[in-house]
Amino acid sequence: MTISTEETPSASDEGAVVPALQLRHASKSFGSVIALHDISLHVDPGTVTCVLGDNGAGKSTLIKILSGVHQPSDGALLVAGKEEKFGSPRDALAAGIATVFQDLATVPLMSVWRNFFLGNEPVKGFGPFQFLESAKARRICREELLAMGIDIRDLEQPVGTLSGGERQAVAIARAVYFGAKVLILDEPTSALGVKQSGVVLKYILQARERGIAVVFITHNPHHAFMVGDRFYLLNRGRLRNEFVRDKVTREELVKAMAGGAELEALAHELESVSR
């Protein structure tokens, strides 16, 4: 809590960096239920901002506010320093905020390149005679995937035959290609094994290297620690902690995430059971 008050002014003072995305005292309530309370956070270009929280912490509500599905009931959402009000995810997308949701929005039976351009197919021609530029689409798709470090040999293969990590990569590469300045990833590693998670974490870093502001939402502090530059911890709709890289250890992060004392108590309890 104290860190947060120290950190915020220093970042905005000397850092001439304008946050790509910022929430200022944002709250969200559904009727009498307060889902989020007084959340202030900022996401800088070329960094990975991790939002950590357990189930029910308010992560999904936060994503939905950032991606334009919901509007904050109170407070403001700033994009590149300017206040914005999104009516729909489409508005957010137009402002360069792309969200990769857990279902990935890919069609399993369709080929990789057709999925990559779905809804934004490049066409050539006039009037009713507009045809897909499939050679160009394939070339771009291959280049973009290679730039992310993914080599898919056959772009005609259905997306459903790719591994979970590769599918995640296609969705990320697609968002990056279509002009995302802010990339929001909703639990991209939650359904993956250790190896596949590693692959996805690599893509997150690749996206960061391209100057994109990445918002990485997860409940796994280990994954967050490996790639994050800044960490926000959500708990029951409130921002509990804010950490920056190099000023926090993995243990601190895990402990804070698990609710510190609670976890110790649980460990103690488990020990007594096993004895």
Partner: peptide, 8 residues
Amino acid sequence: NAARNTGV
């Protein structure tokens, strides 16, 4: 749903 989400 995927189609709708990608703007089809």
